[in-house]
Simulated assay, not measured.
Amino acid sequence: MTAIIHPSTKLGSVSLRIRNLAQSVRFYTEVVGLRMLRQHGRIAELTADGKRPLLIIEEVQDLVISQTRTAGLYHFAILVPDREALGLALANLIAHNIPVGQGDHLVSEALYINDPDGNGIEIYADRPKDTWKRDANGEYVMTTDPVDVEGLLALSQGKEWHGLPDGTVIGHVHFHVSDLDKARAFYCDVLGFELTAHYGGAALFISAGGYHHHIGLNVWAGIGVPNTPRNAAGMEDYTIELPSREALEEVVSRIREAGLQVEQRDSTFTVQDPSDIWIRLAVA
């Protein structure tokens, strides 16, 4: 039987490569609604609760914006606690004249924007879990319908924007990949995430503990596309948080058994996924 990652596994912070730290700090604080936690050199750590970083951005000299389709970050997703918070976020995006994509996925309502370096961002709110539906194969039913924008904005009327509220977390990450089978083998067979939905041979959604998805994988950029080069804007790493040292060591053991290189740095372990994105494995 294939090993399954601990059901209480969540995602932690996301790190991005960006070109201009001051510009990105303004964007992520004024537009997205995060707050500065600390800054050291060309690195800024941003937070929602004032205690732990959700986003780490690093200014990289001579960084380029990739002009070709590559495997790597599609978007990272910021999960807010409720629809009111999503409505307030939407009103603030509109106030800043930010182009906004949107999608009602049945399990959630989502807004999509890009940062100044083209890194994709989703800001979303989940619907109550007891409303999520599964199909005959046991997979979650998800789609992309229009969001009730007027309803969201009505929730924000008469309320003041104070940025993203406490309880905001990184809900999921979504990647373009060059080979869906290899990505599934790494994330499901090795790390132990479970399949929750798939769309033909083009996209997979996987999670821990029955969430609709902690990770999305797709070949929408093309099969066999190269990975995003290290000198281009994109995701540097992200964190998978396990609930105990034992749960962490079980995952690390599977990585080693698969013949993959894993490095230990203090109390965390790091491994690269097939898209050359570093993953930090840590105890929450």
Rank of each mutant, 00 (worst) to 15 (best):
L111F: 12
Y112R: 08
A125T: 13
I279G: 12
R17D: 03
A203D: 08
L217H: 09
E263L: 12
T239C: 15
G12S: 12
L260R: 13
E194T: 15
A125N: 12
M1K: 09
T70Y: 05
Q157A: 14
F76Y: 15
R230T: 07
T70G: 01
R134D: 03
G234R: 06
G50K: 13
R245Q: 13
G33V: 07
A247P: 03
Y74G: 04
L79V: 02
D117R: 02
P165K: 00
R254H: 14
E139T: 01
V14H: 09
H174G: 05
V169C: 00
L164R: 04
G138M: 02
R265H: 08
V219N: 08
G33E: 01
Y199C: 01
G209W: 00
G151C: 00
G192A: 03
I65L: 10
I279W: 14
F76A: 03
F186R: 07
T196H: 04
I121L: 10
H212G: 13
L46H: 10
G87R: 09
L260M: 13
Q157V: 13
G138D: 11
S207K: 06
H174S: 03
S108V: 10
A282G: 13
Y124V: 06
S13K: 14
V25N: 07
R265L: 07
V60M: 12
S207W: 06
L153H: 11
N137M: 04
G50M: 09
R52Y: 11
D276S: 13
P146H: 14
T70P: 00
D135E: 14
L16M: 09
I255K: 11
I170C: 04
I123L: 15
R52W: 07
T131D: 01
F205N: 05
H75C: 05
R38E: 13
I43N: 07
F205E: 05
R127D: 08
G50H: 12
V177Q: 00
R19P: 06
V141F: 08
T131Q: 10
K182I: 00
A284M: 11
G72T: 03
P243N: 09
I57P: 12
K182S: 10
G41E: 07
A208G: 04
I78N: 02
G216T: 12
L37C: 06
R42H: 09
G224Y: 05
P146L: 15
I4K: 03
G163N: 08
I223Y: 09
L16N: 11
E122F: 03
G50A: 13
Y238G: 14
Q61A: 11
R184Q: 07
N114S: 11
Y238M: 15
E236M: 07
V225A: 06
E84N: 00
V31M: 06
Y211I: 02
H213S: 10
H212R: 01
H214C: 02
P81V: 06
D181I: 02
A233L: 06
V141C: 09
P165N: 04
T143G: 06
N114E: 13
A154D: 15
V25Q: 11
L248T: 10
Q39T: 13
Y112F: 15
A85H: 01
D117N: 11
